[in-house]
Structure formats: structure tokens, C-alpha cells
Design a protein around this nucleic acid. Structure first.
Length: 485
RNA sequence: GCCGCCGUAGCUCAGUCCGGUAGAGCAGCGGGCUUUUAACCCGAAGCGCGCAGGUUCGAAUCCUGCCGGCGGCACCA
């Protein structure tokens, strides 16, 4: 996209000056009384080709196409709800006004007053009785037929993508519906939405490397949050009982089709519930979202989703029994003996090997939604020990379409156990693990105050939207994804 | 960070293998046309091919490096 003036820009500038010279304001302040084109069209679906009515409407939008014909022309106006054709006639408008309207550039924002009719070929059309330039466009729009295809331009100049591609507008409207449906579901069930710090003295709640920033007058470094987990649990300690926060988390990791450095996450915490209740709620909410957007895709969201223990899932896909091979040496031997699995086991501790088996052999196989449950304690520093399975915690992750989209557990509320888990994390940090958790004394003290048994869930909104929309890259569902300079 | 593919007019693309000095449609400009649907017809114009080097009589085409994008690997949600 060139910033240098060229003929196309000069032509538009010249028109702008011509318009001003005619005494027309190319950037007026308002245009009251507009009806969305979908609303204009809705009552007239049955109008027969050639039928005309006196019903008058005012619409506004971007001029997207023009089919001129001398003393008569058809123009297409696009607003958020759709596209509508209007007909300009010299015998209605007069020669001068007709010339003015036809001289508008594709991309200009225009307001149209007109009466409804169905054209000879049956398309609902407004016969223009009046028009107003609402904002002059000084740059050419993308191709009217092919839209904007260039992926890089679509991400860097999302406004052009939204102008040119109806699917882009629909996608982000759909994303908004996903979020509003989720909020309503939680609100209706007695959750209160809270806001906790994005800038944190100490980061925590997930295993990830943070962004660091600096506060000048406090003269101290702060971290951008990697999760809302710890603050939200302090809200539960405080007696808020059901809380959620929906917002951005930031993780200083590599980019991929599934990872943007800032991403939208909802976390909710429910007192007196466990991870089983959390599975019910995830299932219910996702199903209600699918219904709200009239989901029409390859996945079957209907309940109940399978709930498969991690050890079982790994055994099903690889034949390897991690329960029977509960130490590193025997698991390495089992992997070596397997003809289904090839993993780099060098320097990998037992929990990492289990994680690898999950992410390489189970996760990619998932199509319809499934809960994988009961993880090794080493992978989950904030999850409560399993009530019956030694060495495991009550945790689940939800997967769909080869991708994890939710992570949840019965929250650890024993402060002494939490201290030991932090100690383990600090030890990992000393061994060079830069994703381990810093010790959060304030959080442990909050647990010492007493936290009810609680279920907590984190659900990735971007990934949920990917699933619901069939997009295979997170950049497609984030308006302005991270790009290099 | 590594590997592969890609980068040509405002937009969508052809041309790259087999070097010969860049082309189409849309948009824009001038003209014609009272029911078009990617409207149509006529005319004139627009890019030196991501950037920088190199090879060559000659490079969009071959080579090297860099920048950016996409995909994969690694890491992670």
C-alpha cells in the first residue's frame, strides 16, 4: 500500500475540491433517520418484479458498485446489515443532481432517500429521490468483485478487509455474539463480572513467560498478566462466590496459528463446586453459544461430551500405559518399545513426556468436543489433588478440532499444599525453567484466610471463535493480530 | 530459532521452469448508453516486477543477502 500520491489519489482529491467548490460539505456532521438495509428489504420479499410502491426509506452506507447507463444508473450501497441496490434516474433527479450522484467514487459514504420497488429482474431497489454525501473517500477501495485477498493486507489493514469482505464483517459480528452469549449465561447464573489488574507486581496463574513493562513514578517493573486466576481466587476468598473476568491475557511466547501474544480469555470461579460441575457448565455454555450463532459446521456439540481420563486417552491412542509406567525410566522404555510413538525423550522428565504424549498423539485426533480429565500433579500447580487417584489432580482440559480450548480444575484451597507447590515451582525456576511460577505469598495468605471448595475454568475466546467459525488461524478471528514491523 | 513456499499496476491475477527489456480484468480518466446484477461498448493512461548486491551484451525471470507474509517444526492457551 503506497503512501505516495498517484493518479488515483489525485483524482479523488480533485473531486473533493470540486465538491467543495459547489458548496457541498464533503464531511457533514450527521444523517438522522437511517434504516438498515436488511430492515428495509425484510417486509418486501414478496414484491413482484416490476412492482413499485410509495413507501419511502432512508439508508446510508458505502458505495460499492455502480452500473451506469447514461440517464439511469444503478448503485450498490453496503451497510453492516447487507447490500442494497438503488436506482438513480435523470428524470427524477434532474440532470445536474444525476451527474453529481453518478460522480461519487466507489468507497464514498452516502445517504440515500428513495422509494421501494422491485426491478425488472426482481431485485429490491430504492428509486433515489434524494442523496447526501456523508464522507468523501480519498483512497480507492479493494476490488469490488474479488474483495481483498492478500492475507497480509487483510491483517494489517483490517478496515479494508471489513469494507471489502462480507465474511469478515459477519465473522466479527459472530464473535461479538459469542461473547455476549457467554456473558449472559454467566450473569444469569449469578456470576458477577469483575476486573482485576492487567499490570501486576507478580505474574501467575499459568505456566508462561510474561511481558515486562515499567511504571515511571513508582519506578518499578510490572508484568502484564498471563492469567487472572490468582486475583479471581482472592475474590472467592472474599466471599463473592461466583465471579468471572473476560479480557486479555498476555504471554511472551512464539506466534503460531493458535497463539497470539495477546489473547482473550474468560475465567470463572464458582464456590462449592468441583471440576465435574465445571464440565457441566462448560458443556452447557458452549452448546448455548452454538445455538445463539446458529452453528453450522462439522462438530457435534450435543451433550454429553465424553469425559476420558488422560491415562485412558493416551492408552487408547498409543497403547502406552502411563499409570503402569509411573516413573521416567519405565515410561522411556515403554515409548522406545512402542511402534506407534516416536518422541524425543532426551532430558524430558516424566510429566513432560506425558504432556508430549497428550499433545502429539491425543490432541490432534480430537474432532468433536471431549474432556480429558485427571492430570499428573506435576503439570498443575493450582489444582486440587484427586479425591481417589494417587498422584493426580482434579483437572480437565476441553478439546475440539485438534485444539485445546478450556482448562479447569477443582481449585487447590489447602494453603500448606499450595506453599509446597510453589516451592516446587521455584525449584524448577532454579533449574532453568523460565515458565515456572514465582512464589506468590499474598495469594497463599489469602488461601490461609480460608477459600471454599471452588471450581475454576479458563476458556480461550479466540479458539472458541475459531471452532465456531471454522477458521484455522487465530489471526483470522482477532481484528488486529500481532505482526512484525 | 530452523525448514519450505510466496512477494508483479489501487485491487484480483498471468508472465519466472526454457533471461531479450512487463500484460489482462476490475477500479480510475475521456466518451456512449433510461431496468443493470462482476452491466456493456469505444478511447487514452497506469506497474519496471519487496529491497540491496552479483552473474550476463541483456535479469521480473538465474545466484547471494536482507525485509515482510503464509505454512510446518520448536515453545505455548
Amino acid at each position: 500500500m503506497s503512501d505516495q500520491p498517484n493518479d488515483l489519489l489525485a483524482a479523488r482529491r480533485a473531486k473533493l475540491e470540486r465538491i467543495r467548490a459547489q458548496g457541498v460539505d464533503p464531511f457533514p456532521h450527521d444523517f438522522p433517520g437511517v434504516t438498515a438495509v436488511a430492515e428495509v428489504q425484510e417486509p418486501w420479499q414478496a414484491l413482484e418484479a416490476g412492482e413499485e410502491r410509495d413507501d419511502a426509506y432512508r439508508i446510508a452506507g458505502r458505495l460499492s458498485a455502480r452500473r451506469g447507463q447514461g440517464k439511469m444508473a444503478f448503485l450498490d450501497i453496503v451497510d453492516r446489515s447487507g447490500r442494497m441496490q438503488v436506482q438513480a434516474r435523470a428524470d427524477v433527479l434532474g440532470e445536474d443532481a444525476m451527474a453529481q450522484l453518478v460522480d461519487f467514487d466507489l468507497g464514498d459514504l452516502v445517504g440515500i432517500d428513495g422509494t421501494i420497488f422491485a426491478s425488472r429482474s426482481g431485485e429490491l431497489t430504492l428509486k433515489v429521490t434524494g442523496f447526501t454525501l456523508l464522507a468523501k473517500s480519498l483512497r480507492p477501495p479493494p476490488d469490488k468483485h474479488h474483495g481483498l485477498q492478500d492475507v497480509e493486507t487483510r491483517y494489517r489493514r483490517r478496515e479494508l478487509d471489513l469494507i471489502a469482505n462480507e465474511e469478515a464483517r459477519e465473522l466479527f459480528a459472530m464473535r461479538a455474539k459469542v461473547v455476549s452469549t457467554l456473558r449472559r449465561a454467566l450473569d444469569d447464573d449469578g456470576f458477577i463480572e469483575v476486573e482485576t489488574p492487567v499490570l501486576q507486581p507478580l505474574y501467575g496463574g499459568a505456566l508462561a513467560r510474561p511481558f515486562v513493562t515499567h511504571h515511571n513514578s513508582l519506578d518499578r517493573d510490572l508484568y502484564l498478566r498471563i492469567a487472572t486466576e490468582l486475583y479471581l481466587k482472592r475474590c472467592i476468598v472474599g466471599g463473592l462466590e461466583r465471579v468471572y473476568e473476560l479480557g486479555k491475557d498476555f504471554r511472551n511466547e512464539g506466534l503460531s496459528t493458535k497463539h497470539n501474544p495477546e489473547f482473550t480469555m474468560v475465567e470463572w470461579y464458582e464456590a462449592y463446586a468441583d471440576y465435574g460441575n465445571a464440565m457441566d457448565r462448560v458443556e452447557e455454555i458452549v452448546i448455548s453459544i452454538a445455538a445463539a450463532i446458529s452453528y453450522d459446521g462439522p462438530y457435534d456439540f450435543s451433550a454429553p461430551w465424553p469425559r476420558v481420563p488422560l491415562a485412558q486417552a493416551i492408552k487408547d491412542e498409543t497403547g502406552i500405559d502411563i499409570t503402569a509406567n509411573a516413573d521416567r525410566e519405565s515410561l522411556v522404555a515403554a515409548i522406545a518399545a512402542s511402534d506407534k510413538v516416536s518422541l524425543d525423550v532426551e532430558d524430558r522428565p516424566w510429566p513432560s513426556l506425558v504432556d508430549d504424549l497428550l499433545s502429539k498423539y491425543v490432541e490432534p485426533k480430537v474432532t468433536n468436543p471431549i474432556f480429558i480429565t485427571d492430570y499428573p500433579v506435576e503439570l498443575s500447580p493450582f489444582a486440587k489433588s484427586h479425591r481417589s487417584e494417587e498422584g493426580l489432580v482434579e483437572r480437565f482440559e476441553a478439546f475440539c478440532g485438534g485444539m485445546e480450548f478450556a482448562n479447569a480444575f477443582s481449585e487447590l484451597n489447602d494453603p500448606d499444599e499450595q506453599r509446597r507447590r510453589f516451592d516446587d515451582q521455584v525449584r524448577l525456576a532454579e533449574e532453568g525453567d523460565d515458565e515456572s511460577q514465582p512464589y506468590d505469598e499474598l495469594f497463599v495468605q489469602a488461601l490461609e484466610q480460608g477459600m471454599p471448595p471452588t471450581a475454576g475454568v479458563g476458556l480461550g475466546i479466540d479458539r472458541l471463535v475459531m471452532m465456531m467459525s471454522g477458521r484455522d488461524s487465530i489471526r483470522e478471528v482477532v481484528l488486529f493480530p500481532a505482526m512484525r514491523d
